[in-house]
Nucleic acid binder design. Structure first.
Lengths: 183, 183
DNA sequence: CACTAAGCATGACATTCATCATGCTACAAA
DNA sequence: TTTGTAGCATGATGAATGTCATGCTTAGTG
């Protein structure tokens, strides 16, 4: 049957939202179309009423989830306290244990590296993230704030990925703690 | 037919070697058993004469490839020059463009994070890597050399992953260059 | 020298996948 | 009010997957 426009829009948003979560949790190749549709409380059929292909969904999710990250940083206060708060949350056990609504870079960069199509929105949005970090979280507005932003992002992304890959909670905590202490 | 033990051992090694390369190139879930066997110049059948399951191969590959990395660092000279040389090679365009025989951590850590079985050998070997980095590549034998090793590894792994995920060769080179400059 | 069995190729198995086809219903546009 | 069609559920398609079964041949073992 046909549904009101708002209902359809809500379902579309739910597919995107569940896909964003599942992709971050299990990777771009770790979730099937039926699983995503089931999480969105629909059957598998109407997927292609909402997206041209699985790959189209992937690029849309990347764009959305990386855009959210950039917005989040952009709307932060420009202060040492805000920087500290962001880093402590980023390098927390809670963030480590909940990739599904965590940083898109840490969750998806490795998968993106193997997916040429996904690289396009990822690269575009990463530039926004770097610009936002550069203006918000660099130690004062120095001229090399962009270089510092790149190093900062690489550092915390690497630390989070390592902390997630490790089976030993002490080592995992140590990785997070040493990175927090270094910044 | 039956084959000489050395031939069988060579084939076993070839499966492991090709799997190590393919997993690093395409991810732990991006390669099928038939593909691996084909790369090893065998048909898919005898796979289960060599490994109990696909998962058993994955853990063996992780162990092997992470062990190689630890050995490589362990056998480096303990000098500033050796450290510089290692970092320049690690953060090079060549390493970025050839994940198949590159660092196992940068290539596989994200996949390992989603595979509880793979975490076991990964964690064990990562400890060896950190110990090796700590003794070889820390700025002199200071007491906090372990903390420095953790930060160094997170930094270069994060930078390499980012450089690989990006579609823009200028940005990719900038990520590598700024990280090289920072260390 | 006899004979067990290791390890190969071929092929089959049930699943799962991405995608497409169908038919129906009620919303939206005329 | 009439009518076209958006978007749903159900189900089918062919391809790919991990794993197992079979049979054959010869390297090792005793």
């Amino acid at each position: 049957m046909r549904y009101p426009a708002e209902v359809t829009a809500a379902r579309h948003g739910r597919i995107l939202q569940e896909a964003s979560r599942l992709f971050r949790e299990r990777g771009l190749n770790g979730v099937s179309v039926p699983e995503i549709m089931k999480a969105a409380k629909l059957t598998h059929g109407p997927f292609y009423n909402h997206f041209a292909s699985r790959e189209a969904l992937v690029t849309e999710v990347i764009d959305r989830v990386m855009g959210n990250l950039a917005d989040q940083i952009s709307s932060a206060r420009n202060s040492k306290a805000a920087r500290r708060q962001f880093l402590d949350a980023y390098l927390s056990a809670e963030h480590r244990d909940n990739p599904g609504d965590g940083c898109a870079i840490a969750a998806l960069a490795s998968d993106v590296a193997r997916n040429p199509t996904a690289k396009v929105p990822f690269t575009r949005r990463l530039k926004h993230v770097l610009a936002a970090v550069s203006t918000k979280f660099s130690s004062d507005g120095k001229d090399d704030s962009r270089a510092e932003a790149i190093r900062l992002v690489a550092q915390i992304v690497g630390a989070l990925i390592l902390a997630r890959a490790v089976d030993d909670s002490e080592l995992s905590e140590e990785i997070l703690e040493q990175t927090r202490a270094a910044l």
